[in-house]
């Protein structure tokens, strides 16, 4: 379980500050070379903020040219796999479940504090598999609700089980990654056991989830359809809902809002890693360092409606300070998902 720590400078923060100074001293070596090129692979949907915020700042600082190839995580994985002997892509931004596959195939060059000083400034639980990759942003999962249909916003994940919401609740299908936390939270609600334990033992979670069936309007696979139903008032709540989608709809004027229930929210982390044998590794690690730094992350949390991973960036507005952020054990998910989907199909069917 992760917690975003606020306040009090710790010994760790002081160390991180020192590391920051060290990186400043190291920077001139990188700056010396002119007009180098760096190819970064990432999600197509990230293109707007990568090209308007990250790339201009990085190109200016390092006097280089960054080419962003926006596609899907699995396509990026394939690109690295196919060019394993002669990589052309230096940095890759992918979802955590896909990062695990890349690690298993030995495609990544681990991050170390010596090469990426901002690694020391990240909140716990955001560096994975001995530094193979780190999270630079974390969209979070809470409960989205229709402000016109609900007199008061929900406060707990248990609210969606209230019989008064018969046929008004939407959950993501288990084939959508954002659907996974429902099992873990249901287990936690049923037993009071910590979230780590509930990710491993899902029996209680499934037993509790089955009791949600009368309240279910549907289990969506298409996110826009679910929000359409929520905004038009046919559905009253979506649990769990992605901050990056729900808050964007709210900003566009939809009569919905997203709350962080008292049991905490889940992080849906976006990862960044350096490709093994990449051209210009020095510049690649510098790019990762920038994206993990407080300055860039501070500028990204707004437009991406996400939590930062750098501990010096405050939580975005509307989120309680010190709110619990549950981390998902992706290695465990990779192992169990097939069985969970099979069980979901059978027990949650109409």
């Amino acid at each position: 379980m992760d917690r975003i720590v606020t306040g009090k400078p710790s010994r760790r923060a002081v160390l991180a500050g020192a590391a920051g100074v060290a990186s400043l001293l190291a920077a001139p070596a990188v700056l010396r070379a002119q007009k180098r090129e760096l190819v970064v692979g990432g999600a197509a949907s990230h293109k707007p903020w990568v090209e308007s915020i990250v790339i201009p700042a990085f190109e200016k600082k390092y006097g280089c040219k960054v080419i962003f190839e926006g596609t899907r995580s699995l396509v990026n994985l394939e690109k690295i796999q196919k060019n394993k002997d002669k990589p052309y892509m230096s940095v890759v931004q992918m979802d955590d479940p896909v990062m695990i596959l890349a690690v298993q195939e030995g495609l990544l060059d681990p991050l170390t504090v010596a090469k990426v000083s901002n690694l020391a400034t990240l909140v716990p639980g955001t560096t994975h598999m001995d530094g193979m990759w780190a999270n630079y942003l974390r969209p979070w999962l809470g409960i989205a609700y229709n402000r016109n249909s609900m007199k008061a916003p929900p406060t707990s994940w248990a609210d969606v089980y209230d019989p008064k919401y018969k046929g008004r609740i939407i959950v993501p299908s288990l084939q959508n990654t954002e659907g996974l936390p429902n099992i873990f939270m249901a287990g936690h609600l049923a037993t009071g056991q910590p979230m780590e334990a509930m990710q491993r033992d899902t029996d209680a979670g499934f037993a509790k989830l089955v009791t949600l069936k009368p309240n279910l309007l549907t289990a969506y696979t298409q996110q826009p359809q679910a929000y359409n139903l929520l905004e038009q008032g046919e559905a009253w709540m979506i649990a769990s809902a992605m901050s990056s989608y729900a808050l964007e709809r709210k900003a566009a004027g939809a009569p919905i809002d997203l709350v962080a229930p008292k049991e905490g929210v889940f992080a849906m982390p976006s990862g960044i890693a350096v490709v093994k044998g990449a051209p210009d590794p020095e510049l690649a690690f510098a790019y990762v360092d920038e994206l993990l730094g407080a300055e860039i992350q501070g500028r990204l949390v707004g437009p991406t409606f996400s939590l930062a991973t750098n501990r010096h960036v405050p939580a975005p507005e509307g989120l309680p300070a010190g709110m619990t952020v549950h981390a998902i054990d992706w290695a465990n998910v990779a192992k169990e998902r097939k069985a969970w989907v099979a069980r979901w199909d059978r027990e949650m069917a109409l």
């Binding site: 299908s173 084939q175 289990a219 696979t221 199909d345």
Partner: peptide
């Protein structure tokens, strides 16, 4: 079916696609 009845009603075609 994926839009009108959703994930909770599987048919052979939706199971294949998934």
């Amino acid at each position: 079916p994926s839009l009108l009845v959703g994930d909770r009603f599987q048919t052979l075609a939706t199971l294949t696609g998934r």
